Computed example of a mutant assay.
Amino acid sequence: MTQPIRWLQDEIADRMLQKLDIVKLDVRDILVIPDFPGNHHAALAKRFPRAHIHSVLEDNSSKLQLWIAKTRANWRSIFGGGKTSSLTHLRSTNKFDIPDNSVDLIFSNLLLQDLTDPKLFLRECWRVLQEGGLVVFSYLGPDTGKELRAIQSESGILQLKNLLSPWDMHDLGDALMAEQFADPVMDMEYLTLDYERPRLLLNDVEALKLANKNPHLDAEIGDLPKKLTLEIVYGHAWALGKHLAKSQDNVAYIDVNQIGRKTRTDSH
């Protein structure tokens, strides 16, 4: 995402937090990915006032702006040892720069559509979440920008870019189960953006990474749509039973030393 679409990130973050209203979770450490200097810091600090915020920054984010946003929201996230890394590091290594079992909540807003393999992301979420932790996410679904497809095929001028991960909510739900997450909940909504000028639409198309940048595109295409559809997919799932070995052939194998330990089986 880039600055022109910052308002959308804040809007979707608000909706994600509203969906958490029914969830009870004791949070001491939060991983926000991607993190940006928006209004979500204040909302997270209000919801989880004792939590430390660990950040994976957008590639174009200012560390100073993010520091100011966190300071205004919650001083604990600054002086409590919250770690900061970058999306560049994640893309190059497929790893978060934080230890195993170190966070209670992962808050990921509009990222998965830009990753080549969301399964690697989910594996990292499983690794860093503590037992009983929660991953909450949103991303752009495959129907995003569907109005633009006819223009590309007719004119050849507008060069659309496929979402790196055009997964619908069923694909992601299946992936969560495959990565051992419990009680996944998925839902989806369509948002329709209306535009008065073609250039405004194209600015958002480029910011959402749906097409290659072309400053003269609005002059070259005479019949641009006046609206843009966004498919927003939401989901969350729990990290439960992390001490159990991964199942093989539909059978869960456990170490003899684990017998007798109490496991968490309550649902949310």
Score class of each variant (00 low, 15 high):
Pro118Tyr: 15
Leu25Glu: 13
Phe96Arg: 02
Ser77Asp: 09
Arg28Trp: 10
Ser92His: 12
Lys83Trp: 01
Ala73Gln: 02
Trp75Asp: 03
Asp35Glu: 11
Lys19Asp: 14
Trp75Thr: 06
Phe36Cys: 01
Asp35Leu: 00
Lys70Val: 03
Ala45Pro: 11
Thr71Trp: 15
Arg91Cys: 13
Thr88Arg: 15
Thr93Met: 04
Lys46Cys: 09
Gly80Ser: 13
Lys46Trp: 12
Trp75Asn: 04
Leu44Val: 12
His89Ile: 02
Leu66Phe: 07
Ser61Glu: 09
Ile78Asn: 07
Asp35Arg: 01
Glu58Val: 02
Ile106Val: 12
Gly82Phe: 02
Asp59Pro: 01
Asn94Val: 02
Gly81Phe: 13
Ala13Gln: 12
Phe36His: 04
Leu110Phe: 10
Asp59Glu: 11
His52Leu: 15
Asp59Cys: 05
Arg76Cys: 05
Asn74Cys: 02
Leu64Gly: 03
Ile106Lys: 03
Asn39Glu: 14
Gly80Asp: 06
Gln113Glu: 13
Ser102Lys: 05
Arg15Ser: 15
Asn60Asp: 06
Val23Asp: 06
Ile33Gly: 00
Ala51Tyr: 04
Lys70Met: 08
Ala13Phe: 12
Ala43Thr: 12
Asp97Gly: 00
Gly38Glu: 01
Asp114Asn: 10
Ser77Arg: 04
Met16Lys: 05
Asp26Gly: 05
Val27Met: 08
Ala73Arg: 01
Gly82Ile: 00
Val103Lys: 01
Arg47Ser: 03
Leu110Thr: 02
Asp14Ser: 14
Asn74Gln: 00
Leu57Arg: 02
Ser85Glu: 01
Lys83Cys: 04
Val27Ser: 10
His52Gly: 15
Ser55Gln: 09
Gly80Val: 12
Pro34Ala: 00
Asp100Ser: 11
Leu17Lys: 07
Phe36Ala: 04
Leu64Ala: 09
Asp100Met: 06
Ile68Thr: 14
Pro99Ala: 13
Thr93His: 06
Pro37Val: 07
Asp14Pro: 03
Lys63Thr: 04
Asn74Ile: 01
